[in-house]
Design a protein around this nucleic acid. Structure first.
Lengths: 260, 260
DNA sequence: GCACGACGGATTGTCAACAATTCCTGTCGA
DNA sequence: TCGACAGGAATTGTTGACAATCCGTCGTGC
């Protein structure tokens, strides 16, 4: 049964992603354009698809990711899928259990505390850097991002909005002009999305739009101190809104069937 | 020629590490004891050996790491070596170029600036956490670590001392009680060692012992503010001591031959 | 004498088959 | 009715061989 569920979810993933490939020749032409770092096109595509599905909470924590399913979905060999899963595991997006395959990571309450603490401290540093380095163009770009976010919220486009709200924090890291800290924050933000998906009180908002806007205001003024303080409160609110009770192993079947 | 050099270096690596294995049965018995996370014993051994060789500067930046050499040195298949190299690449210890194999990473001047900036900011946060969370036992352990460091310095045991000096920073991160930040710092410290190996002014000391000791003093008093300030200066000194001139492509042959 | 292109060795990327383990399910006995 | 055990299907780990690519060298033409 678990297998069936995973397959169905994976199918949705592929539906969202680019159309299936028949062979390598089809994907080669435009590969160079997207190519970043070292990933050989198709690998980054698989990675990004899974990653994006986790960020938008279509792939929920604990979901199994069988190699064979991913193979036929993306029409690649197991070696390729395997490499991608390794990378996702290194980024703590999935958990790799020996001889038992990969599942979407499900952080424990203690890990949750550590992740949020690390994120608060890291964003504090990043916001100050952003306030020090922001150009006029940066502010304009951030405001454009905020507008998109605002629109998505009013359109009740939940997945889109969740993505944009997370994206705002990463854009801020861009302005800080330190790719290393940006990479660390990327990992933490995605893990936070994971946590929200795991412990979400149904129908709870993840990020207040106004707080984002006010952070940008302070950054524009170069007031890193106030911007950092506001961001800290913003993240504490986010953390407080998730109910992280140790009733983790419960929601397996009974609740899904509406019993209990 | 490059291949020859790499092989020679790798040979030294294996000489330092545990004795060669003939087959799997030999290593299985004590594997469970060392086993951490998910790595299947032999993989973590290869990883640690390479990692340690980089940290102690036996493997210099730019050194090639051919798969076949590592295969016969550790008596494993290419798939295993390949997995380890992927992991090392993810941690930015080696660089993986498509179709051209792995080399020990050689950070550019710009990357160097980013790494040191990230490290300074991260250690600032960590030191404050450590000051807030340190127990009596932690202080005792840190002092013991300092003593070892002191001894190694006076014995002129350079590689040992370099390892211990880096290790001190990581121990501090342990005291901060946040494994995530600790992992980030581990990555940054190892990359700094890499940089020191790349841009080292011959015979230059990497870490002042006294500064480490004074940081511990402040932490014992719970004075995170002063400890952080001191650590910041300490790291700025370290960064200032490496000469990162953009004459990177030059020192290839002329300087090696003592000409120019 | 020098630049350009082709060939061979070496190295890496990819794949498919085999071996080992786990999970599910059905049966037996108390 | 419940627990334990065993068999089989499904999934993962591993290996070896094959294909593609890169590097150094040689040869040819200008």
């Amino acid at each position: 049964m678990a297998t069936k569920t995973a397959t169905k979810v994976a199918a949705r993933v592929s539906a969202k992603g680019a159309p299936r490939l028949r062979n390598k020749a089809e994907v080669t032409p435009d590969a160079d354009l997207i190519d970043m770092e070292n990933g050989s096109d198709i690998e980054t595509r698989i990675y990004d698809t899974v990653f994006d599905s986790v960020m938008t909470q279509r792939l929920r924590p604990g979901t199994k990711l069988p190699e064979s399913s991913l193979c036929e979905l993306f029409d690649v060999s197991r070696a390729t899928v395997r490499k991608v899963l390794q990378k996702l595991a290194h980024d703590h997006i999935v958990e790799l259990r020996v001889n038992r395959g990969a599942v979407v990571a499900a952080p424990t309450p203690e890990e949750t505390r550590q992740i949020f603490e690390a994120r608060r401290l890291l964003e504090d540093v990043i916001v100050r850097l952003a306030a020090a380095n922001a150009t006029r163009a940066d502010i304009t770009a951030l405001r454009a991002q905020l507008k998109q976010e605002h629109n998505a919220m009013h359109r009740f486009a939940q997945p889109e909005w969740a993505r944009l709200a997370s994206s705002f924090h990463l854009r801020l890291a861009e302005v800080a002009r330190n790719p290393i800290l940006q990479r660390y924050l990327t990992e933490l933000v995605s893990r936070c999305s994971l946590i929200v998906a795991l412990y979400e009180p149904p129908g709870n908002a993840s990020c207040e739009h106004d707080e984002h806007a006010r952070v940008v205001d302070y950054i524009e003024k170069g007031d890193g101190e106030r911007a950092a303080k506001l961001m800290d409160e913003h993240l504490r609110t986010l953390e407080a809104n998730i109910c992280v009770e140790p009733e983790e192993p419960d929601n397996s079947l009974a609740s899904m069937l509406g019993l209990q």
